[in-house]
Amino acid sequence: MSKFMMDMLEQPEAVRKLISTSDVLSARAEGLDFDKVLFTGMGASFHAAEVAASFLRSSGIDAVSSEMSEIIAYSSTELIKKYTTIFLISQSGESAELIRFIEDNRALVRRMALITNNGRSSASRNFPDERIFLLNAGNERSMGATKTFVNSIVLMLIIAASKTARQIDFSKLPSRMEEALALDVSWLATLLSEKRERILVARGFGIGVGRMARLMFAEVAKMSLIFYTGAAFRHGPVELLIDRPVVLTLNPTGATHDLMQELHSDISDKCDLITLSNSNNESVETVYISEGLDEVLASIPMMNVLQKTVEEIARKRGFDPGAGVYGTKVTTKE
Rank of each mutant, 00 (worst) to 15 (best):
196 R>S: 06
140 E>W: 04
119 G>Y: 01
216 M>C: 09
37 V>H: 10
309 T>E: 08
281 N>Q: 11
149 F>A: 06
51 V>A: 08
103 E>R: 15
46 F>D: 02
223 M>L: 11
330 V>R: 00
244 R>E: 14
183 L>R: 14
13 E>P: 07
134 L>A: 11
134 L>V: 09
212 M>D: 06
315 R>F: 09
160 A>V: 03
16 R>I: 00
127 F>D: 02
224 S>A: 13
261 Q>K: 12
291 E>I: 06
205 F>V: 01
302 M>K: 07
300 I>M: 12
308 K>L: 12
77 T>I: 10
135 L>S: 00
135 L>E: 02
94 E>C: 07
171 S>D: 15
49 A>N: 05
214 R>W: 04
211 R>W: 01
250 L>E: 05
283 S>M: 12
40 T>V: 07
84 T>D: 03
104 D>W: 13
145 A>E: 00
302 M>P: 11
272 D>C: 13
283 S>K: 14
190 T>C: 06
168 I>S: 03
142 S>P: 07
119 G>Q: 05
243 D>E: 13
88 L>K: 00
330 V>A: 00
128 P>H: 00
288 Y>L: 15
100 R>S: 09
326 Y>A: 15
19 I>Q: 11
298 A>N: 07
165 A>D: 13
215 L>R: 09
79 L>W: 13
327 G>R: 14
257 H>F: 11
141 R>V: 03
115 I>M: 02
95 S>P: 07
277 S>P: 06
326 Y>Q: 13
204 G>F: 05
109 V>T: 03
211 R>Q: 07
223 M>H: 00
159 I>T: 04
160 A>C: 11
179 E>V: 00
55 F>S: 04
240 L>P: 02
322 G>S: 14
176 R>Y: 07
312 E>H: 10
318 G>C: 10
86 I>L: 12
8 M>C: 08
86 I>C: 11
37 V>L: 08
42 M>W: 00
312 E>K: 07
123 A>N: 01
58 S>E: 15
290 S>D: 14
218 A>R: 07
334 E>R: 00
151 N>R: 04
85 T>M: 03
311 E>K: 05
14 A>V: 05
277 S>T: 02
88 L>T: 00
49 A>G: 13
298 A>T: 01
282 E>L: 10
70 E>A: 14
203 R>W: 09
117 N>G: 12
192 L>T: 01
250 L>K: 01
116 T>L: 10
